[in-house]
Design a protein around this nucleic acid. Sequence first.
DNA 1: GGGTGGCTTCGAGTGCGCTCGAAGTCCTAG
DNA 2: CTAGGACTTCGAGCGCACTCGAAGCCACCC
Lengths: 165, 165
Amino acid sequence: MTSTLEDHHPAARLRAVMESAATDDGTLPPLDGELLRAMALPDDLPETLGIAEVAELTGITAHTLRYYERIGLVTVDRDAAGRRAYDRAALGRVMFVTWLRLSGMPIASVGRYVELALEGPHTSDRRLAMLLEHREAVVAHLRELQTALAVVDYKITTYGGSCAG
Amino acid sequence: MTSTLEDHHPAARLRAVMESAATDDGTLPPLDGELLRAMALPDDLPETLGIAEVAELTGITAHTLRYYERIGLVTVDRDAAGRRAYDRAALGRVMFVTWLRLSGMPIASVGRYVELALEGPHTSDRRLAMLLEHREAVVAHLRELQTALAVVDYKITTYGGSCAG
DNA sequence: GGGTGGCTTCGAGTGCGCTCGAAGTCCTAG
DNA sequence: CTAGGACTTCGAGCGCACTCGAAGCCACCC
């Protein structure tokens, strides 16, 4: 199964989105609606994708995709031959899970979130609460990272000074 | 050894610095010279600190501080009774190591950096190179986190919409 | 029909970064 | 003098998130 995907679609969409946010210096561009639109999947995807294609599209290894399914983070149908066939919904869930993971949410929490989602729409306020709480954690982590970056930058600019570190 | 530190010095300086950068909404304040000055140690520290005081000051557990010493990330003198006595230099190194760790540098890399520092001033360009390279990694991570935050925010604002995740 | 390559399942292994517990030492307070 | 508590060393254990390998199935190509 060589990648017809590669011909018709930008590969590794998630990574592409991240790179699209890149600037040369250390400054961080604002993230706006444009970026979010860029994250949408192309319309002309095949009905279902094999695991290798999903791996390429998301940057997650096939091994890890199987692992995610095993522990219940995603549910994936099989084709006649017993192979995983990711439809758009499954792909969307994989990508969302991936973003949650990239944002630092522990696997156990992602699992609880998915569990709630599977229970039905009546859990939506609990899920929303989880996301809001998680958002705070992400913001805190961002702040921490920015501060640490400032310290590293300070060290870089004062290099040649003290050898304290 | 109850904390005389607590009376005379702001506790958990590292955490205090991070909290000083906090804002109520999700926006991130600029990190400027003011913040960097705030990170400096107070002048009226005792000559040496015990491990519990360093733990309180840095937010690193005593267990972890011992572990860091074991694996060579810091070197600490002993007092007459064989206890760790952190002088200003040692404390500075602990804090710098902590910032490197918080910025996501793996322990092995911190170890290599410290090794180079111990070799002498002639390794300063290699250390600078390490810091510059690490800086790129931190910036990349920041971008990734910001993008993931945008996705989470998107999900939050569109809640009640699709149940794709 | 035989080989190649990608998929399947399952369970076990890996790497990182702590984290803990046991057993002993030393100082201080009562 | 004795009890308590904070410290010491050492080695082992843990939690997380993968990551890998073995053994087998299935489709396609020569």
